[in-house]
Design a protein around this nucleic acid. Structure first.
Lengths: 343, 343
DNA sequence: CTGTTAGCGCTTTCAG
DNA sequence: CTGAAAGCGCTAACAG
């Protein structure tokens, strides 16, 4: 009555045993067509629903996978998770989400909680501060729980990763600025202990060197991904004796801040200064002065991460495969850096 | 060794019984300080972790709650979920997320899957098409699983809801447009079988009637929340014999489309036409021509939804409380509708 | 083809 | 204060 029909209830009703019911329900081994049908019917009629929890305990597989991200309310992470969910759903996996808010302790707590909850895998983007905390990651691997990093990864043996080629994205964006005639390109960077930010920095640097321009470390500034920070830094840059004629930002938010400050100072974009960001946040496209940015295909990244996980689960008993998927970034050239119309 | 220490392992090691270990670990009934300490120590030393799955099966509580939304990659839903997660985390609940993609069958499947997974509650925003499918909702209630709607609700007896006052938000926004001197205000609506869109429409209508303006149903157009749709509809509106001098949109995306079309036709905003949207999507603030919108406090909504759930869980054995929380929307007046600077 | 039995890991009476 | 035993709901040998 209270929605709690078990296989015992239906076994009793039919004067058979629970094992038989279980078999009938699972189309498993040999079972008479008659009883199977009978079981199926009464199961439906009694409104029987399998208790996945019992199955999980028995099998050791919860059919839940944990996803850990710094935060949820960012278009990038939300879209990656969407991809993960859509890819995993048809396989019967549920997605449990956790946020670290870039807090190392929360990250550790979340990992432990997920392991205790017996998740079948953990897909994560590490937090800003977790670089040196390999302990928890090791614990995951020790338990034989598949671990896959996406976007922000740590370098750990035996762990598959799905990333974009941040170096290449940054290289392309910087090259594009150079092609626009810019000669002194500043870079708004971020914590370079995180690989993605280091790679963007390195790509930027390489593009400058490859083009025979002077590389000047003094116009590379490390900050955090906030509009106000972008404004603040840009103000400093513009007040230099030798101000930049372009800004390549590792974040769309700081790029927006840069644009605001540049305009506030009465300079023209892209005529006086070109600006390019990174991440292709929705607003970059919507602005009247649309912002050039590098798309990271978050949906594809999410789906790919899920696929790598599924593959790993499938090959569980055989050899452990360490897969490194690197997606190709897409440079989206928009008004904030288009001096001529032929681009 | 393989990270699978159970209470039996530690019991065996200490020559006591599993029950004692369990009691010691849970600080439960009377147990000698000596053995408790001993158990605690060897547990730590053997790296014991409680298997929540076993606990869940035993207790019937999974400590997971399901959250169902139309989609994840929308700032609004992502932020609500962030709020839910942050509020529930300290209480040991995990959040399982599901997307319906406004597909009725997916919605039903998700509900069933969550119930089978024995979630301790379901928090959801109904899909565009689920208005008449009360069956699944009933099934949730029948199983005594707390069900709470946020934002997009269905009207079902005994179900708590957390919403904003959409009527009021729309009323205020429309009033504001009227205060700007607009006399013929069009409305970009959406499926009005969904309460939030119906309420926004009604609030809009009431504001017009209260102000003694003429209400004209022919400039109320139902569409879907996409930029291109906003453009298309706006084109039609502007080509009318008697075009509107303001547009109040139930979505920021259609509002953006409207703005694009208005500009494309060479008209000035807000001088010729005022525009206001709804939802306070991030881009509305970032635009150079920032868009007036109604904030729905999604973070607060998420936290409140979680709180209502927690309350319901706490009072489980006593009376079932049906709670209707209605949050206050905040009108954010920006450039797209500010003719004078004193607003 | 079906019944019996045991066990996943934990908690919780009930005895002692 | 601790041990013995049962059970949450399901599956999987092992017999028959």
């Amino acid at each position: 009555m209270s929605g709690k029909t078990t296989i015992y209830d239906i076994a009793k009703k039919l004067n058979i045993t629970a094992a038989t019911v279980s078999r009938a329900l699972n189309n498993n081994s040999k079972i008479s067509e008659a009883t199977r049908k009978l079981v199926m019917e009464t199961a439906a009629q009694m409104n029987y629903k399998q208790n996945k929890l019992a199955l999980a305990l028995k099998s050791g597989k919860s059919n839940n996978i944990g996803v850990i991200v710094p935060r949820l309310d960012s278009n990038f992470f939300a879209t990656v998770i969407r991809g993960i969910e859509e890819e995993l759903y048809p396989h019967g996996f549920h997605v449990i989400i956790c946020q670290t808010r870039d807090d190392k302790n929360l990250e550790i707590e979340n990992i432990d909680a997920l392991l205790n909850a017996q998740v079948d895998g953990i897909l994560m983007s590490i937090s800003n501060v977790s670089i040196e905390q390999n302990e928890s990651f090791k614990r995951i691997l020790k338990k034989n729980v598949p671990l896959i990093f996406f976007d922000r990864k740590a370098n750990i043996n035996g762990v598959s990763t799905v990333t974009i080629n941040d170096f290449h994205g940054a290289y392309e964006a910087t090259k594009h600025l150079i092609n626009q005639g810019c000669k002194r390109i500043a870079h708004l960077s971020n914590n370079r202990l995180i690989e993605i930010f280091r790679d963007r920095y390195l790509g930027y640097k390489q593009a400058i060197l490859d083009s025979g321009l002077e590389f000047d470390e003094s116009i590379v500034i490390e900050t955090i991904s906030k509009v106000e920070e972008g404004r603040k830094i840009t103000k400093i840059l513009l007040n230099m004796d030798n101000p930049p004629d372009a800004i390549f930002s590792s974040s769309d938010f700081t790029a927006l801040g840069a644009i605001q400050e540049i305009k506030a100072q009465g300079l023209k974009i892209p005529q006086d200064i070109c600006v390019a960001g990174f991440a292709n946040e929705p607003f970059t496209k919507f602005m009247e002065l649309s912002i050039t940015s590098v798309d990271q295909s978050p949906l594809e990244m999410g789906k790919m991460t899920a696929k790598v996980f599924l593959e790993q689960v499938r090959n569980n008993d055989t050899i452990k495969i360490e897969k490194k998927v690197i997606l190709k970034p897409k440079l989206l050239i928009r008004k904030s850096s288009s001096k001529n119309s032929n681009e």
